[in-house]
Design a protein around this nucleic acid. Structure first.
Length: 467
RNA sequence: GCGAUCGUAGCUCAGUUGGUUAGAGCACCUGGUUGUGGUCCAGGGGGUCGGGGGUUCGAGUCCCCUCGAUCGCCCCA
C-alpha cells in the first residue's frame, strides 16, 4: 500500500485542438447554442441528435476519399478481428463524426416512409476533425446543422438561408458584417462543359475550381489543360452570367421585376426561382452570387452557398444534396441544408463586440439568482441561512448563499453582486422578530419582509421586473 | 504532415551580459477601516519557470528533443 507521499503527481494537458469550458466559457457557449436552438424552433425545425461516431464507410463513400486523412478513427478493441483490421489496414471500423449530413441522411432514409415532406430538422452536434488547429479551426467543435428534406423547389433553399440569416439577426449581426455568397453546381457544370471539360472530368474540374484561389495561376492553368478546360473562356462565361444574375438580384431587391436572362437552361431556372424565394423571405440584401464557390464535398448537387465575414474563414456553408438520401437506401429525396460552427461565429461576434458578458450574459441565459442570502447578525441568524435557502428553492426560486465567515455587509453584498443576484436577503437583528431585509440589487431599494412571505414576495417582485 | 514565432502563479506579464530562498497587478482566502454592492489598508495560499536531457561551479536565462499555443502552408465537411 503506497503512502500518499509516494504518489507522484502527473499533470496532463488537454489534447491538441480541444477546449476546456469553465463557467465563463460555458456561458458563452450556451449563449450561442441558445440562439441556434431558439431561432431553429422559431423557423419550425425539430431538434435531432445522432451518435458521435459512425461507421467510417459512411463518410468515405459519400464525402470523398480526401476526408479520410482528417478523420479521427475509433474502434472498440473488443474483437480480435477488429484489432487485426486496424493493424493491417491502418483503418478502424468507426470514425468520430467529422460532419452531420451523412448521419442525417442515414436517419431520414431509415424512416423515410413515415416522415412528412418536407421534414425540417436541426441538430447541435459536436464534431471532430484531425486537422492542424489554427484561427477559426479546432479539432473538436460544435456545429449547428439545419436541413429541409423532401422539398425540391428553391423555396427550401431560401428557407434554410433565411434560417441562417435569422440567427445572425438574433445575435445582432447584419449584412454589413456578413455576406451570403450563392452559387449553383449545375450552372457551373454547364459552363465547364461548354468550356471544353468532358463529362468524365466534371468532378475533377469542380474540385479544381474550388481550389482556384488557393493555388498559383500557372499551376491552375496547367491543371486546366489536363482536362481540356479553356480557363479564359470559362472565366468569361462565369463572369458574364454572374454579372447578369447579380443585376437581376439587385433589381428584385429594389422592388422591380425580374429582368430577362439571356441564357436559358434548367440551372438558370433554378437561380431565378431562388432569387424570387429569397425575395419572399426578405433577405436579398444579404445575398450575392459568387460562382467561384463550389464547396468541397462530393455530394452537393444544385445550390451551394457560404456565409463569409471579412478576414475570417466561412462562418457557414451548405447546399443541396438531392441524391444522398437515395444513396443510403432511402427513396429519391431532395434535400438542402447547412452547417455553422461555433468557432468562427464566436470570433465574428467578439470582433464586433456582440458577445455579451457579465450580468447581461447571465440575464440572457436565465442564470441570475433570484435571491442571495447572507447573515449579518449573530449565531441565531446564521442558523436561519440554510433552512431559508432551502425554503426558497422549494418555492422554485434560484437561491444562493454566502459561504464567507465575515459579518461585514459590504463584503457580503459584494458577494451577492458577484453572481448578479436580483435580490440580497439580509438576516440581521430583525431576524428574531420574523423579518428579513430584502435589498433589490438592481435599483438599490430595500424592504422589510416577513420571512414567511419571502418566497412569494420575491416571486412577485421578480416577475414584475421581467414585465 | 510542413514552416515561423512563442511557453515564468488561475489570468496579464516583469525577471537586466547565466549568479543567493523566482517577483508585480488582477483573481482567490483571512482580517481591519465597527454595518449596505465592482473603493482603501494589512496579511495569506498558490509556481519542480510546459516536460525531458545536455553545457556549466551555477540555467527561468544557452543547446537538443518533446508536448502545447498562435499564425501561415496542405486541407477545408
Amino acid at each position: 500500500m503506497a503512502s500518499p507521499g509516494s504518489i507522484r503527481p502527473v499533470r496532463f494537458q488537454g489534447p491538441k485542438g480541444t477546449r476546456d469550458f469553465y463557467p465563463a466559457e460555458m456561458a458563452r457557449r450556451r449563449y450561442i447554442e441558445q440562439a441556434w436552438r431558439t431561432v431553429s424552433i422559431r423557423h419550425g425545425f425539430d431538434e435531432i441528435e445522432g451518435p458521435t461516431f459512425e461507421s467510417a464507410d459512411l463518410y468515405a463513400v459519400k464525402s470523398g476519399e480526401a476526408i479520410l486523412g482528417e478523420l479521427f478513427q475509433a474502434f472498440s478493441g473488443k474483437s480480435p478481428e477488429e484489432v487485426e483490421q486496424v493493424r493491417s489496414t491502418g483503418r478502424a471500423p468507426y470514425a468520430l463524426r467529422p460532419e452531420f449530413t451523412p448521419t442525417l441522411a442515414r436517419m431520414f432514409a431509415d424512416r423515410a416512409a413515415s416522415l412528412p415532406r418536407p421534414t425540417k430538422w436541426f441538430a447541435i452536434p459536436i464534431h471532430y476533425r484531425a486537422e492542424r488547429p489554427q484561427r477559426g479551426r479546432l479539432r473538436e467543435f460544435l456545429q449547428w446543422n439545419a436541413d429541409v428534406i423532401g422539398e425540391e423547389s428553391p423555396q427550401a433553399d431560401a428557407e434554410v438561408i433565411a434560417l441562417a440569416v435569422g440567427l445572425f439577426t438574433e445575435l445582432g449581426l447584419s449584412g454589413r458584417h456578413l455576406t451570403v455568397r450563392l452559387s449553383n453546381r449545375d450552372l457551373v457544370s454547364e459552363l465547364l462543359i461548354e468550356s471544353g471539360v468532358g463529362e468524365a472530368d466534371l468532378a475533377a474540374a469542380l474540385t479544381l475550381l474550388d481550389r482556384r484561389d488557393r493555388m498559383a495561376a500557372e499551376e491552375f492553368a496547367r491543371s486546366c489543360c489536363q482536362i481540356g478546360l479553356d480557363a479564359a473562356a470559362l472565366a468569361a462565361r462565369l463572369g458574364e452570367v454572374q454579372g447578369e444574375m447579380n443585376s437581376a438580384l439587385a433589381a428584385m431587391e429594389n422592388g422591380g421585376a425580374m429582368p430577362p436572362i439571356a441564357r436559358k437552361s434548367p440551372a438558370i431556372g433554378q437561380l431565378r426561382g431562388l432569387i424570387e424565394a429569397l425575395g419572399a423571405q426578405g433577405i436579398l440584401k444579404w445575398c450575392e452570387f459568387d460562382f467561384s464557390i463550389v464547396r468541397g464535398l462530393a455530394y452537393y448537387t444544385g445550390t451551394v452557398f457560404e456565409v463569409t465575414a471579412a478576414g475570417e474563414r466561412a462562418v457557414a456553408g451548405g447546399g443541396r444534396y438531392d441524391r444522398l438520401i437515395a444513396s443510403f437506401g432511402g427513396p429519391p429525396t431532395p434535400a438542402v441544408g447547412f452547417g455553422m460552427g461555433d468557432v468562427v461565429l464566436s470570433l465574428v461576434l467578439e470582433e464586433h463586440g456582440l458577445m455579451p458578458e457579465g450580468e447581461r450574459l447571465a440575464e440572457c441565459l436565465g442564470t441570475r439568482p433570484d435571491a442571495f442570502v447572507v447573515s449579518a447578525g449573530d449565531e441565531s441568524s446564521d442558523a436561519v441561512v440554510a433552512p431559508l435557502v432551502a425554503e426558497l428553492r422549494r418555492a422554485g426560486l434560484h437561491a444562493r448563499r454566502s459561504y464567507k465567515a465575515t459579518k461585514k455587509i459590504d463584503k457580503l453584498l459584494k458577494d451577492a453582486a458577484a453572481c448578479y443576484s436580483r435580490f440580497a436577503v439580509i438576516l440581521d437583528e430583525t431576524c428574531s422578530t420574523g423579518n428579513v431585509q430584502v435589498k433589490n440589487l438592481d435599483d438599490g431599494s430595500q424592504d422589510t419582509v416577513m420571512r414567511t412571505q419571502l418566497a412569494q414576495w420575491i416571486t412577485q417582485h421578480r416577475s414584475r421586473a421581467h414585465v
